[in-house]
Design a protein around this nucleic acid. Structure first.
Lengths: 347, 347
DNA sequence: TTGTAGGCGTTATCAC
DNA sequence: GTGATAACGCCTACAA
């Protein structure tokens, strides 16, 4: 079924059918009804390709998951609670605004081609990049295509008018976490980092350092261990931290995400430490599963819901308002969630 | 940039450009190189709408999340661990085969229109329905459009040649769970159901009943409580079960999913029961978070990964082989995961 | 091997 | 308010 046939059946021209489909005002109520009846009867829906070719925008947003630092044997999305959650929210929130999400994954340099194709081919009207692991040069090539794009936690030297730079408060969160430990009287505070190729890991580390500095606590390199956000890496990191500091253990640890924090707690409890009596732990992300931990993990919550909401709402606005440029760099707030793994050292 | 311009720049016709783009054999190596050079230089990618209009298939699979039984204030996908996981795998697996996933959500009857539009408009080449909560009549209207579709745990009276019916072994899993309890000497076995509008919940219940029957254990209605797969409903159900059977508590409970099982355990422990010494618990789904439970929940694992893999692989095969019909109804296996919440009653 | 020409389904422009 | 027509970018006969 196509508009030509509908036109014939309704006894009008294709133009009139188009006008009805697009709800244009210059159609008499009578004609509209007549045409609509036929449309309904035959369940006609216009062909997306045809419309697109004729210059109409579609309601599809590309969600590009970019991460080059992945282990080969892992699923990109499924094995990342952050990305899973991101996609889930994105679909839900886009749906509220009658948009669709088209998801695509990029883990190697060759795959940027795929994104360019998708964007150039006009299958999507706008794009969101998430994952924090993009190659800057490839990213800039794509940006220079001029399409409307949201970048999440993906900092660039230059600003672009067609790009919304959205950042979550990773630095602030790292600072907040460390400060909370300091407020509780801790001075020997360790940090287990995330994957340092990623901006968010770097920023959390920077926040940790700054909080120590502002409180006149000397940074000790032996109190920093390096993870990559996975549970296994958390285990390895705490193991190393323990081996290096057996005789001078920190009284508190800020772990760069909750996943690693789980393993840290497990390891320490196995070694006979009580949490939080002997060692306080604070995580990051406020991941779902922290609900299931007896007691509950003290952590920094960054609202992925808010992050997604900002991305999609801003992008859709931008797409539909037909504005020339994004006026904004936005930050999404984090906050401290006090639960039961931090204890005052003077208690 | 379009094929016409590329043609002019390369000094050939548009057809030749097309032949190069589509890797047709009847182009001399020389011309191909010449044209490809221009294509690369200008980063040209053909317009998807144009191709589609000219009859080419795209590599987009629609993933439709259908669930009518949702509470209004919940996110459809984000609040369902099953659907979140499904989407994550789908994106990962589709990506492996160079396909994209376009996700859309349907929670009300009016929204089926959206799916029809998407399918009719040829924005997607095939579709997967998941969620188990579709309206049969709307579903059949869509099926009758003749496009290639995979239906997951969504049983229909009629079989359709353009539909692959994929089922997970919910009945078998329910049977297996109950049988495991029976094997451990239990006779007073309760069941907390899922949302009975959903096929999977119904099947799990049926498995429970059949296992009792096959082992000559009389079904007691007082030992069945009704949940809807959410944690809260699990709490309410166990509360009711407890109130009704204070003086004759079951020694084992098969709970229709892990989410509810968590709450069941929590409730019972608060009432002073020990798990599994006093009451054995078995869940369903082998959800992610069960890792985080101290001890670990005994459960039935249905491999969502396998379910997704089957869906996508079969669908892509079907799309590309250009076969006339799906030859298959497939079932995805479940298996028993023994952990620490089931104890033999004779111990 | 390559070029020409028609058609895919829609919308926009211009007449009437 | 409505209809005719051109245009969007591509692919695929068919012709050369």
């Amino acid at each position: 079924m196509n508009s030509k046939k509908i036109a014939k059946l309704a006894g009008v021209s294709r133009s009139t059918v188009s006008r009805v489909i697009n709800n244009y005002s210059n159609v008499t109520e009578e004609t509209r009804k007549k045409v609509q009846a036929i449309i309904d009867k035959y369940g006609y829906t216009p062909d997306a390709a045809g419309r697109s070719l004729a210059g109409k925008k579609n309601k599809v947003i590309g969600l590009f998951i970019v991460d080059h630092y992945l282990k080969k044997d892992r699923y990109v999305i499924h094995d990342s609670p952050y990305l899973s959650e991101f996609i889930s929210y994105a679909t839900d929130i886009a749906d509220d605004q009658d948009y669709h999400i088209l998801v695509s994954v990029v883990t190697q340099r060759e795959k940027y081609e795929k994104i360019r194709t998708l964007i150039n081919s006009k299958m999507i009207s706008g794009a969101i990049f998430v994952g924090g692991g993009a190659k800057k040069d490839e990213l800039e090539k794509i940006i220079n295509l001029g399409h409307k794009i949201v970048l999440i936690d993906e900092p660039l030297e230059k600003k672009y008018e067609n790009v919304l730079h959205l950042l979550s408060e990773n630095f602030e969160g790292g600072y907040m976490a460390t400060e909370e430990l300091i407020k509780n009287g801790h001075k020997k505070i360790a940090h287990i980092t995330g994957e340092l190729e990623k901006f968010d890991a770097l920023e959390r580390l920077r926040g940790y350092k700054k909080a120590l500095e502002d409180n006149n606590i000397k940074l000790k390199n032996k109190y920093i261990a390096y993870g990559d956000f996975t549970m296994e890496s958390g285990y390895l990191a705490i193991e190393e931290l323990y081996e290096q500091n057996k005789n001078d253990m920190p009284t508190a640890i800020f772990v760069a995400n909750d996943f690693m924090a789980i393993k840290v707690i497990e390891f320490l409890e196995n070694k006979g430490f009580r949490i939080p009596e002997d060692i306080s732990i604070i995580g990051f992300d406020n991941s779902n599963f922290t609900h299931f931990l007896a007691g509950g993990l003290t952590t920094i919550s960054r609202s992925i819901e808010q992050l997604v909401n900002q991305s999609i709402t801003n992008l859709i606005n931008f797409l539909e308002k037909d504005e020339k440029k994004f006026a904004i760099d936005k930050k999404v707030k984090v906050k401290l969630i006090k639960r039961n793994t931090v204890k005052s050292i003077t208690d």
